[in-house]
Design a protein around this nucleic acid. Structure first.
Lengths: 317, 317
DNA sequence: CTATCGACGCAGGAATCGACGCAACTCGTA
DNA sequence: TACGAGTTGCGTCGATTCCTGCGTCGATAG
């Protein structure tokens, strides 16, 4: 009665993989229904489903499918945590990896590969968990540089090449946003927000700015984040209203990188100490004097922290 | 009106199916008269008829009979007629409250006014705290309806009138996003994500969808959120890849509410059980048949939960 | 006598099966 | 740096299995 045997299609839908993949997993790794007569339909029991769930989770963590299958074949359930003793990157020499419908992440490591796999499956839970794990372990900057950016770039390349994968891109972006939003905030004890984060006019990409925001939060620094598509007038208005010490303006493509919106900041009545032109959109030599262009997230963070330390209360308060 | 018990033939004629089919539905899916002594004639009450009506409608829309029966066994109404008890558009006329540089929030209460004030100050900390407080105290739905929506609408009106306040709008949006993202998630114990949330093509407003997502998370329901600007092709692709039971498509303005993107969902090979056209963009009478249009957040949430309960394995069958 | 009952069977179609192949990514090697 | 070998997810194809609506039959309720 309770043991409603699930069909292959139902299981595939539940896991987020194709039906054919289930068949492949069965015949390649022996990961199928406990008993199955060849030629007949596969009927997955709850135990079988649990095994597959383990498989899904392990691959999402970047474990080679072959290896994950070996684990899943004996692991009891999805809740049975992986024996962490074996989790460290024990990559047996000579094990080829990769292939299939995948996002290229190059040598970005198993974590990136797992994230890419979860993304292809549109598995937001696994995506969120992977990012949260990385954030907790390595911090915002490292997670961004070594996990998130490679995967996002990979999706972008593939998207540009095949004109598909838009859903994947959106889903991952959202999960990244959510993960950044939950980066533990230090209390307000760190003083007022003296740094303003904003996208350039018409600029829609906020993720890098959110990474910066999360990194600042992680470092215990308060900030104001305006978000996407901020017109120059609105930015100036915000600066005049809040008088920040530093302003970061992100531009992703040259189309949104009008230097005028930086110039007007420098001439505003409450001129910020530091103006950062962040992002690949800015054209180095057309920037007005007095604007700093950080090359990566780490530099932006350290510049921001330097500004805080240079004018706030240094240590005690 | 009278609870005349209909005979099998009468019901069959009314539904347009054969009498034997009614018998089959009874013994195969348990979809028959509420009480029936074996050997005696079947007597269908009005409620039984309604159940069968649902069954007929769903199967006529291409849904697997087994799944349709599961849904019909608990859904009372033939059409998705949810008790649309109230939609009180109480518009307080001429309540002048706080002039000058303020956001009109109407009668939304002191909490909304406080939030509006913090927003005008670009004080993200205070904004975040206010939202978090409301979420913890009243839950997602109430916070959205009585706090966030009034304030956002107020900002929008003012923005439309004065062409300013863009920074305020962005900042508040971001804070709301962050707050929703930190709504406590129940673990994955609640099963796979069977509901897909997506914006319509070219639609940029995600906040209402995020509210829905947070409400679902609060209710312990898993979901997949695709985010803004999802082209119809990408949405169909995602549906085919993950086979959700329900899809919510949000459209804020009529410009993004092309009914074709709903139609294509209904004709997709892996047609979802329920398609929700959410948001004020959709034009009621141009929606394809089989699409349900929730009037507010609460209705969308309850519909989503109904779908989950209709196909999860609750207890016994 | 008529409509319905339970049981059984059948035909059409949807879902799945097994086999095969393809494309795409990684990694070792030249 | 380029290339070939290994891995892997998934699409496709013809055959098979399973689901589902309904007709039929002898018996029975109304």
């Amino acid at each position: 009665m309770a043991d409603e045997a699930l069909s292959a299609g139902a299981v595939a839908r539940r896991l987020g993989v194709a039906v054919t993949t289930l068949r492949t997993w069965h015949q390649r790794y022996g990961l199928g229904p406990s008993q199955h007569v060849p030629g007949h339909h596969r009927r997955y029991t709850a135990a079988d489903l649990a095994r597959l769930e383990t498989m899904r989770r392990l691959t999402a963590e970047g474990i080679t499918p072959a290896e994950a299958a070996r684990w899943a074949r004996q692991a009891p359930g999805p809740t049975g945590e992986v024996p962490t003793n074996a989790l460290p990157e024990v990559r047996p020499v000579g094990v080829r990896d990769g292939g299939g419908q995948a996002i290229p992440v190059g040598r970005a490591g198993p974590a990136a590969r797992g994230l890419a796999r979860a993304a292809m499956r549109l598995d937001s839970v696994a995506i969120g968990e992977a990012i949260a794990r990385a954030l907790a372990a390595d911090g915002v900057v490292a997670t961004w540089d070594r996990l998130l950016r490679p995967v996002l770039v990979g999706i972008g390349e593939r998207h540009a090449a095949t004109a598909g994968l838009i859903e994947v891109e959106h889903l991952v972006s959202r999960c990244v946003s959510e993960a950044f939003a939950t980066v533990p905030r230090i209390g307000t004890a760190t003083g007022p927000a003296r740094i303003l984060l904003s996208c350039a006019d018409e600029e829609q990409h906020t993720l890098p700015l959110e990474a910066l925001a999360a990194a600042l939060a992680e470092a215990g620094m308060a900030y104001r984040m305006l978000g996407a598509r901020v017109p120059a007038a609105a930015l100036v208005e915000a600066v005049n209203r809040t008088g920040p010490a530093a302003v970061v303006v992100w531009s992703h493509t040259r189309a949104t990188a009008d230097p005028a919106q930086l110039t007007v900041l420098l001439t505003s009545p409450r001129r910020p100490l530091l103006v950062l032109a962040a992002g690949p959109g800015w054209w180095a030599d057309s920037l007005p004097a007095g604007v700093v262009r950080p090359v990566d997230l780490a530099e932006a963070v350290s510049l921001a922290l330097a500004v805080r330390d240079s004018l706030g209360r240094p240590t005690g308060d």
